[in-house]
Amino acid sequence: MFNRIKTWTVWCIKEATGSCAEVTRLLSQGMDQPLPWHVRCKIRVHFLICDLCQRYGRQIRFLREAMRKYPERLENSSDGNSPAVASPRALSPETKERLKQKLREQTN
């Protein structure tokens, strides 16, 4: 009996605040533009019944943090071609020479 009431309550809140598919979409959109206050409220209330959406929100914010640290990370791979990454990290000496040659041609 108690479980039934719980399920119905959760269902009602879900109906009022939108499905997880919709809430995840809004969470993403909220990172790109300010959401109207009533939408933010809807998300808050949805979080009361849904840990997973809350977790999803945290995780996509983590992606932003990681993305912003990514160039710094490349910068710090001081050996130029870190074994942890697949693609080249620096210009080869030949390419540098070719670039210089090109610039010399341009100045003449």
Binding site: P71, G80, R89, A90, K96, L99, K100, L103
Partner: peptide, 13 residues
Amino acid sequence: ERWVDEHGDYLFK
């Protein structure tokens, strides 16, 4: 030519 040596790798990354 100095640009290539000093900034080339950074710009490439």
